[in-house]
Computed example of a mutant assay.
Amino acid sequence: MPSPIGNPSEAVCLVQLTDSHLYALGHADLLGLDTSASLNAVIELVRSEVPDIDLILATGDIAQDASESAYRRFIAAVATLPAPCHWIPGNHDDAALMGRIGSDVGFTQEWVDAGNWRIVLLDSSVAGSVAGYLAPDQLELLERALDSAGERFIMVCLHHHPVPIGCDWMDPLGLLNVDDLLPRLRLDNRVKVVLWGHVHQELDEQLDGLRLLATPSTCVQFARHSVDFATDTQAPGYRRFALLPDGSIETRVSRLEAGLFLPEPGAVGY
């Protein structure tokens, strides 16, 4: 595990980037949108809005083509921000390749302690599947993280959504074994936040004291409450947090200027 970040008596500033969908070749596009350019624009927005960052989280689908070049491009992009980054794989990623590359640069961790918080990083990806599943080793990782957290408050991160989000086409593509996760988290009053990517849209809900949060992609946005696959015209963005010592959080989503980085109209999938 990395050394603890920050002081337990102080707030921690965290930035979440998710679903960048980079390619081996720079300036390749997803549904007509240049994913490398949009990621760099979002990172520039972070730099202008959040001068003092303690930690960056990247919650999956780093690459669209699961190529080493795409992962190296992501690493280079986030290196321009003044904070360490940790990542987890999504359904488009090669988890084993990410693990090897990430171990070399410190991106791959099971959890990280920041301020008075423990941030647990779960791999919900399944090779060949769009939907997610927490394998036994990931559930065991979660137990170890909870058992050793002491009095720290806890944020749990994964790629796939563990609750319905109100999109008929997307809801079946979330976490398939949610009953192995949420009941365990709801038993532990130290667990305050569950955070994910995958859905390319913003969500902020409560479940029995758990804050449930999803975040816009740094590239294409999906339309909320859609029956079939549909993109949205909102701009790419990121989420920022202040994790406070008393277990409360402050969070908001920030986006690029409206009208930037729009996908091609009428796309039916990707």
Rank of each mutant, 00 (worst) to 15 (best):
T251V: 10
Q234M: 11
L244Y: 06
V227M: 08
F229L: 10
P236L: 03
T215W: 05
S217Y: 08
P236F: 01
F229Y: 15
R240T: 11
E250F: 12
P245V: 10
D232M: 04
A230S: 13
S226Y: 01
E250I: 14
T215E: 03
R239G: 04
L213M: 15
Q234E: 14
S217G: 09
D232G: 03
T218F: 10
S254W: 02
F241A: 05
A230D: 01
T218R: 06
F241K: 03
T215P: 01
D232I: 01
F222Y: 13
T215F: 06
R252G: 12
P236C: 00
D232Y: 07
P245K: 12
P236A: 05
F222G: 01
V220A: 09
A230W: 03
Y238A: 06
D228K: 02
S217N: 06
P236T: 04
V253E: 07
T231A: 05
T251E: 10
A223Y: 00
I249G: 04
S248A: 14
S226I: 01
S248K: 13
F241H: 01
A214W: 00
R224N: 10
A223M: 12
P236E: 07
R239Q: 04
C219H: 07
L244C: 13
S217Q: 06
R252I: 07
A230C: 12
S226P: 02
S254H: 15
G247V: 06
Q221F: 08
S226L: 05
L243Y: 05
G237N: 06
L244K: 12
S226C: 11
T251N: 08
P236I: 05
G247T: 05
S217M: 05
V253A: 12
P236M: 07
T233W: 04
Y238R: 06
D246Y: 11
R224K: 14
C219K: 03
L212P: 00
T233L: 13
V253F: 09
D246L: 10
L212V: 11
A230P: 03
F222P: 00
L243C: 03
A235V: 06
E250N: 12
V227T: 14
T218Q: 07
S217E: 07
A214Y: 04
R224Q: 14
R240N: 05
T231V: 13
A214F: 02
P216W: 05
L244M: 14
A214M: 09
R239F: 06
A223K: 15
A223S: 13
R240V: 13
L244I: 06
Q221R: 10
V220M: 06
R224I: 07
A242Y: 09
V220I: 15
R239A: 04
V220W: 07
L243Q: 00
R224T: 11
S248F: 08
R224Y: 00
D228H: 12
S217D: 05
T231S: 07
R239E: 09
Q234I: 03
P216Q: 10
